[in-house]
């Protein structure tokens, strides 16, 4: 587990959600969830399938409109902001089911976010270039996620493991302050999973991370704090050791995995 320095823990949270509620007909996916993410923190969200984890990420990102509740990023209310506006304020996410740009090279996949950040996507006459400063920034991101040798390859023909790496690279291309990771280990083998944990550990710190993950080894290796969601409600939240020791937790959830 990484050490989180005390000053950071005491600092104002980067991301604060209060009373987030989302209903689908009779089903309450999120029932008044309070959630926060501090600077430099990895905050894992765990719980059984259908517990509301992905709905929570969707609401934080702006893809799902909450029925009630508020979300603030770096002190500013972002509840009413659309996805692209939140991204430009420093929020990024990855998806549980791989979501890249098929038909575009790995380099071009990363270039979209870099151009959006530089606000050059609306240029309509000069050719879109992937060289120069933008190319260097893209190459640096691909090096970080371990895709250096694959920059010219169509994203559609990458292996599943490589697509999961590209998924992270695309999220990093927007230079986020807060990164929401939705099951980054989904479908990965043991070795690939281990490399993904190393990758997440290497980007954590400067980027605060909300980690939704089923792999408990990964969660306990990475998380500074863990929140447990069951039936759309927070049943426990705290340091990993406390969560591991919580008898309610052991019976409710961890019992299945440990």
């Amino acid at each position: 587990m990484r050490a989180v320095d005390k000053a950071a823990v005491l600092a104002e949270p980067l991301l604060v959600a209060r009373g987030l509620t989302k209903r689908y007909g009779g089903l309450v996916a999120n029932a008044g969830i309070d959630f926060d993410l501090r600077p430099r923190e990895v905050h894992a969200v765990i719980g059984p399938n259908g517990g509301g984890k992905t709905t929570l990420l969707g609401q934080l990102m702006g893809e799902i409109e909450p029925d009630a509740g508020t979300i603030a990023l770096t002190g500013a209310d972002i509840t009413a902001l659309a996805v692209p506006e939140r991204v430009l304020r420093g929020l990024a996410r990855s998806y549980q089911v791989t979501s890249v740009f098929p038909g575009f090279t790995v380099l071009e996949n990363v270039a979209f976010g870099l151009r959006a950040r530089r606000r050059t996507t609306s240029r309509f006459w000069r050719a879109a270039r992937t060289g120069g400063e933008l190319g260097e920034a893209a190459a640096a991101i691909l090096r970080r996620v371990g895709l250096s040798g694959r920059s010219g390859v169509d994203a559609a023909v990458l292996s599943h493991g490589e697509q999961r790496q590209l998924e992270i690279a695309i999220a990093l291309s927007t230079t986020p302050k807060v990164l929401l990771l939705d099951e980054p280990l989904a479908g990965l083998g043991v070795d690939e999973g281990r490399r993904m944990v190393d990758l997440i550990a290497s980007i954590a710190g400067p980027i605060a991370i909300v980690l939704v993950e089923h792999d408990m080894d990964a969660v306990f290796a990475l998380a500074d704090r863990i929140t447990v969601l069951v039936d759309g409600a927070v049943i426990a939240s705290g340091a990993p050791d406390a969560i591991r020791a919580d008898p309610l937790m052991r019976s409710a959830y961890l019992g299945e995995d440990l």
């Binding site: 991204v87 151009r115 996507t121 879109a128 927007t174």
Partner: peptide, 25 residues
């Protein structure tokens, strides 16, 4: 072949992801 055009083509390939990298499609 401009950035504008690549955004259009990229959004056709994956609209949700294009929004999620900060482009108001």
């Amino acid at each position: 072949r401009s950035p504008f055009g690549t955004v259009l083509r990229g959004a056709a390939a994956n609209e949700r992801r294009m929004q999620a990298v900060g482009v108001a499609v």
